[in-house]
Design a protein around this nucleic acid. Sequence first.
DNA 1: TGCAGATTTCAAGATCCTTTCACATTTATC
DNA 2: GATAAATGTGAAAGGATCTTGAAATCTGCA
Lengths: 224, 224
Amino acid sequence: MLNILIIDDEADMRHLIEMYLGNSGFACFSAESGFEAYGILENNVMDLVIMDIMMPGEDGFEVCSQIRKKSNVPIIFLSAKGEEWDKVKALQLGGDDYIVKPFSPGELVARINAVLRRTGGLKSDMDSIRIGKVAIDMKARKVSVAEKDVTLTLKEYELLLFFIEHKNQALSREQLLEYIWGIDYTGSLRTVDTHIKTLRMKLGVGDYIQTVWGVGYKFEVPDE
Amino acid sequence: MLNILIIDDEADMRHLIEMYLGNSGFACFSAESGFEAYGILENNVMDLVIMDIMMPGEDGFEVCSQIRKKSNVPIIFLSAKGEEWDKVKALQLGGDDYIVKPFSPGELVARINAVLRRTGGLKSDMDSIRIGKVAIDMKARKVSVAEKDVTLTLKEYELLLFFIEHKNQALSREQLLEYIWGIDYTGSLRTVDTHIKTLRMKLGVGDYIQTVWGVGYKFEVPDE
DNA sequence: TGCAGATTTCAAGATCCTTTCACATTTATC
DNA sequence: GATAAATGTGAAAGGATCTTGAAATCTGCA
């Protein structure tokens, strides 16, 4: 279980992120200011920090420099859309990535995993995955089935990755929409069905994606 | 014993939830307005709050913000089907989950447990169960008997889970209908019999589900 | 602007699940 | 044992949920 520290002055945003990450198996700590964060960092080993840039008092950049004096923990910055801020500065100060609000839970988790992988916090270097006959090259964003390349659209690709990340779990349409389309998606639930249809077609035989009647879908890994 | 505060202007809804939760071993407090709720929260430690969104006077969102100023108690929102409301707002305000009315008691309890688990209020997170030869993988929503997969329909699955949750207890048809079908079910009692029949068949030998004559059914755990 | 591919919506049809009903069987009681 | 009440069971109607193809809409790009 990896520990993640969230630093944001807005309680709502903290709760939102906590909820997302809790669901993805991270242990969350939160602080509403740099000051509070330092205390937590002194007494706990954190694997990653997610921090808002715009904060009253010490802003994210200042807090980042402070943290960097003592620790190399990976840091991901949060910034609101349209907010004025300096991407270069963020990375120069030792930030590892940044996310623009609003973001979908899927994006957040994906970026966290990417950063952890880069910084070595995550053991398995998941640059490629193979499940049954399906092989995914994450770096090249290429998928092949039985050694034959297939081209997936963005949604199909994200769907596939999310399924694989949660293999053998029954996932509701609501969950899929929330995690891939983002929490503010308001369209029809049936949209998922259509993408499932095309994904199934492209993955070919193998019945990887099973429908769980009355619940949703499940990516079932064939016995090896 | 965990304390749960119910905030809803409708007395019937409050009583209904109280009844459900009381049966599941929670201690219930209830308030018909935010104002009343604040008093209860001042004088008691609550483990979770269930709150209607649509209320005269202060609505659920306002009450939520007020509560959040002083406490991090998990909050679950209730909303009527088709009601206009903002999922994003609810979660950003610090809500932890939401349930759309009408809901079955089973669903309510499941969501409460999920939230408590996420927020650390509940220790055990059982996502697989084994009783006799019956194994249930809750995440995959998969059931196997003697290591062979069996596919259960929605009702069969819920029935099985409820039986296991209340193993060795005689359960009346009325109870089963109320907890699995929901309080607003108006059909025949005999419906239960049919599902019991198919469940028995699918669970195979073992006589897990026994008939308690004149009362209902009972899931009996075989001696180990 | 116009195009091509991606995404979403829609609705008919297929499929599976749920409920009901009628009748067989079992159980309790006298 | 006879009777009434309760339960078991198979079949079939009725509902609900998925699948699918086609059309509409959106999006990025030249």
